[in-house]
């Protein structure tokens, strides 16, 4: 596994905002998403909210030096508050809002039972231990009720957190995705080819060329 690194140095998909790669509808949609502040929550109460933030920090960790971390928790809360559904739910799981509320409370209860502190007060190692146990289905605190923890973890925690994270332009820049593309799409589709409006990957030992290219994508 390659460790996470600044693979597309200087690339910011938002610099393409006023280029032909973005249409008006896309600008509206992204402006709304970027307007969701990191502390904004309407659906979850404060206790659930702090637990959710602590969960998201471990499921989709962000670089410590990232100036504006992706507000993953706020994006999840936004989904719950606006009632956007996935179109299905497993028969063992309650509705998404109820599942999240119960699951977050249960994770917090598990933390207090195992470590004597709230989930958000735990260090990374302890949080991961609890999440791994949820994933494996080995948690059994009464707070879970009849909700299977493994299904909660895969069907709600992973699904919602990952979708929220990779719906954010900062994540697109991180993985070198071209971002919105309409009316302008792409021309060069072969191996190892990129259009001048696509992210340039830093080749080992030579980030300079990539930086130069990446500063030009918005032109």
């Amino acid at each position: 596994m390659h460790p996470r690194r600044d693979l597309y140095p200087g690339y910011d998909v938002l610099t393409k905002r006023d280029s032909p790669s973005w249409n008006a509808k896309t600008r509206d949609v992204l402006a709304e998403r970027l307007g969701i502040g990191p502390e904004k929550h309407r659906f979850l109460d404060d206790e659930e909210w702090t637990t959710l933030k602590a969960v998201c920090d471990r499921v989709v960790p962000q670089p410590a030096d990232r100036a504006d971390p992706i507000p993953v928790a706020a994006l999840i809360d936004h989904k719950l508050a606006t009632g956007e559904h996935d179109g299905y739910r497993h028969a063992d799981l309650p509705d998404q809002g109820e599942a999240w509320r119960r699951g977050l409370a249960a994770l917090d209860a598990e933390a207090r039972a195992a470590y004597g502190a709230g989930f958000h007060e735990l260090g990374a190692w302890a949080r991961d231990e609890l999440l791994k146990a949820a994933e494996a289905g080995t948690l059994a605190h009464p707070a879970w009720g009849d909700m299977p923890t493994a299904k909660f973890f895969s069907g709600r925690v992973l699904a919602d957190a990952v979708k929220a994270y990779y719906a954010h332009p900062t994540a697109w820049s991180e993985i070198g995705f071209g971002g919105p593309a309409s009316p302008r799409g792409y021309v060069r589709m072969d191996f190892d080819r990129r259009d001048p409006w696509e992210a340039a990957e830093a080749k080992p030992g030579d980030a300079g060329e990539a930086i130069t290219q990446n500063r030009r994508v918005g032109r």
Binding site: P9, G10, Y11, D12, L14, T15, R17, D18, R27, L30, A31, L34, G35, G37, P38, A67, D68, P169, T170, S173, G208, I211, T212, N214, R215, G218
Partner: peptide, 22 residues
Amino acid sequence: MEARGNGLPGVRPRTAPVRFEA
């Protein structure tokens, strides 16, 4: 970079090391 001005709150430009483009 004027993109930042209108309607994209909460995002600061990712600053790339400045290189003289000669």
